[in-house]
């Protein structure tokens, strides 16, 4: 199937998340992060942070905090199991912390294919803000394997 290039420029509605300490601690556990800075509020404060820092890649999950985070792909007629993450980048403006209310807005920026349509690519950019001020910009390539 071919994804219509007409979706380029479409954005998902903003999603907002209050970053919880418990989620950051679970994230740290899952990635084997034992640095107390990321799990112990007292250690974070002693190091000059207002609360637990949001680690560099946690911001990716913000966009997934909607009832069906994969709806934007499924609405294109794509089966989730045929989807792979191709690449991911982050450009950071400033750090975020537990307790922050962060908002993400994603826009599809490009659609293209390779190998005669066997692989289709979707590029998206996600802007993450706190009170309207930029925190980070994420760029993601999603790969759809057509059999």
């Amino acid at each position: 199937m071919a994804i219509s290039p007409s979706i380029v420029g479409t954005s998902t509605p903003p999603v907002t998340m209050t970053v919880e300490r418990g989620r950051l601690q679970l994230f740290a556990k899952a990635i084997g992060q034992s640095d107390p800075l990321y799990v112990d509020v007292a250690a974070a404060r002693a190091a000059g942070h207002p609360d637990l820092p949001v680690p560099p890649t946690f911001l990716f999950g913000l966009e997934l905090e909607r009832p069906n985070p994969f709806a934007w792909i499924e609405e294109l007629g794509v089966d989730m199991p045929s989807v792979l993450h191709g690449s991911q980048s982050f450009d950071y403006t400033t750090m975020a912390y537990a307790g922050d209310v962060l908002t993400a807005v994603s826009t599809i920026t490009d659609v293209y294919d390779k190998k005669g349509g066997a692989l289709e690519f979707l590029d998206r950019v996600t802007h993450i803000t706190r009170d309207g001020d930029p925190i980070a910009t994420l760029t993601q390539t999603t790969v759809v394997r057509n059999s």
């Binding site: 994230f27 890649t57 950071y92």
Partner: peptide, 30 residues
């Protein structure tokens, strides 16, 4: 594994040696 798990492991390599506030950009290809 989730690709982002690997990227989170790489972020540990970075924050083990540099303050996170120094990180300007970070990109990976899976």
């Amino acid at each position: 594994a989730q690709g982002m798990l690997g990227m989170a492991h790489l972020s540990r390599l970075l924050t083990d040696h540099f303050p996170q506030s120094s990180l300007r950009s970070f990109s990976t290809r899976f």
